[in-house]
Design a protein around this nucleic acid. Sequence first.
DNA 1: TTGTATGCGTTATCAC
DNA 2: GTGATAACGCATACAA
Lengths: 365, 365
Amino acid sequence: MPGNKQKHATLVDVARAANVSVATAGRALGNYGYVGAEAKDKILKAAHALNYRKNLAAQSLISGKAKTFGMIVSDIGIEFYSNIIKSVVNYCRGHGYCVLIYDTHESVRIEREALAIFQQHRVDGIIVSPADFRNADHLREFVSSGGRVVQIDRCVPDLESDTVQLDNRRAARECTRKLIAAGHRRIGYIGELSEIRPASLRKFMATSQPVSDARQPFAPSCQRLFGYLDAHREAGIEVCPDLIGRTGQYSDGAACKETGKVLAHAPTALLTADGLMTVGAFRAIRAHGLRIPEDLSFISFDDLDWLQFVDPPVTAFAHPCSRIGEEAARILIKWANRGEDASPLHHEHVRLAGSLIERESIRML
Amino acid sequence: MPGNKQKHATLVDVARAANVSVATAGRALGNYGYVGAEAKDKILKAAHALNYRKNLAAQSLISGKAKTFGMIVSDIGIEFYSNIIKSVVNYCRGHGYCVLIYDTHESVRIEREALAIFQQHRVDGIIVSPADFRNADHLREFVSSGGRVVQIDRCVPDLESDTVQLDNRRAARECTRKLIAAGHRRIGYIGELSEIRPASLRKFMATSQPVSDARQPFAPSCQRLFGYLDAHREAGIEVCPDLIGRTGQYSDGAACKETGKVLAHAPTALLTADGLMTVGAFRAIRAHGLRIPEDLSFISFDDLDWLQFVDPPVTAFAHPCSRIGEEAARILIKWANRGEDASPLHHEHVRLAGSLIERESIRML
DNA sequence: TTGTATGCGTTATCAC
DNA sequence: GTGATAACGCATACAA
């Protein structure tokens, strides 16, 4: 009778079968230390016959390395994140690493729990797109206890971590320029912008400086608003505050409602801050019976799959999702494989360029 | 100087700080055995102060349980899979389990590698959508070494595992009935169908029995073809073999090409076998300048996000993605938490119903 | 109720 | 080159 729990051959079993000591078997199978040729051969054969698999838990206990990274995003089902996850997973696989994944639905509580689990697993680093900028003590604690964090897309500004993200300001500027070049002067913008209180929006617009290469201490939707403002400023166009839609929360429903308000102020073009905003805005445009591009030109910030299928296909700014994932994974792997030479722990801040995919949703005025 | 590697407090540290033995500290923090109230209090305080996190590797070494499942899909970026992953991850989190994820891009070699890694991690079970029906010895080996496998969507028929999938035959029958009820007699079908050699398609069509509740030993695209044939048979309509498009490989490019061929035989309606086929078919329809539903009615098997955004919105059959993920996770967790009473290892075969989302892509003839 | 001792499967440190 | 043996951090049987 085979017993209830799985049996796995151990080094001891292999060593016995090959007539050597555990130490020798370990050296042969772990590729360290000296092993004689014929001994190694015997051991490999025995291991294969017994279907031996090294127990990573035991290895982790000794080495302190789990050969595993943790990853936290707000919604695995969102195209943007699932694409990044895919590239992270594949890059890590190629380098012998696993990835544990959690989905927070924007809940800081769940993010905290996920982090605790990761610490129990002794992961070698984490990739995270934080749920809340103002509530990241758990991330700080993780860092201060020696963990390495790579933030993607969203970045808590005062966290000692690496960051990988699109150059949001430049990208939004490029989109806005495109619309301005087509003759548009009343360009709407729909974004979460929860950091900016509605009352201070005008002040905020005035505050935005033409150039700022410093690390941007803002959410992506705000950074992109900067780019939107930049393009207007350089073209000498004054921005009408009514055209800036602030949803306040990150949902397509809110985006739909806010877009409705903006449409009441007669924009000739619309730029969204990301894919979720695009979904909401699209619903509002439909509901208002507006045609693209005859009645309204449109650029989606985030190239959702379906934008190429609607009629006419919609111009969009494509995130470099694969690059984001690969860069994040690369940083962690480099760190995890560092030697004993204590290099001074330098954090990377990768800014990537995306690309504007021109389709047919912009009308020349 | 803080040293190069992360330091984590251990039970020994906590015990010392709380002035108790390791055993007592372990009992308090592991919630097992007897612990005095004030001792427990001291220990909890000390653990908190030291930011103690139990080392799951050590626990796994003893218990043989990793509190982790493995999951293998062919493409994380596909909406269908990312939705399932999301529900698996969330369900598992609620029950104290982690999920390791791999993406095979349909490569059996990678699937094999992933499985080996999972064995090294001593995962408590795996969820897999196999890359190849005819090449699953690695899965069999996993099972015979005591591992538990839940197959989703695609199922290797002779593998001792649980299965969770849509009732494909019934679902496709429902879609086809809908088209027939609308008056359509020439309904095209686009699927991978790689199991069926083109030469034997006619024979295959004749072979299909009206009723077969047995576990279907075929790929989803074939099972769905059965449903398509069922609906025709019960309506007394003869199927024209030219209307059945077999892509032979799983790619949207192949689907586009094959759809082109089918369109040449003047179907009035089209049913796809899944989301990837839908994408390819849609491109072909565009390329042929056909309008939906005026020139061609359309049902997508798989309710992709964008189908509600195109004009007109497309009728689609929605997979119960969340349910699939939850059922799969439920089965594994139930098994992982089983007691010592060796229940006789019964495999579940869950068949779920999806739902036809009616939109505006079907024209009444 | 608490403490002591032993083992899980590896790797590392020594002698041989 | 190879083989004992002691860790790693936790859980468990058993003694106190």
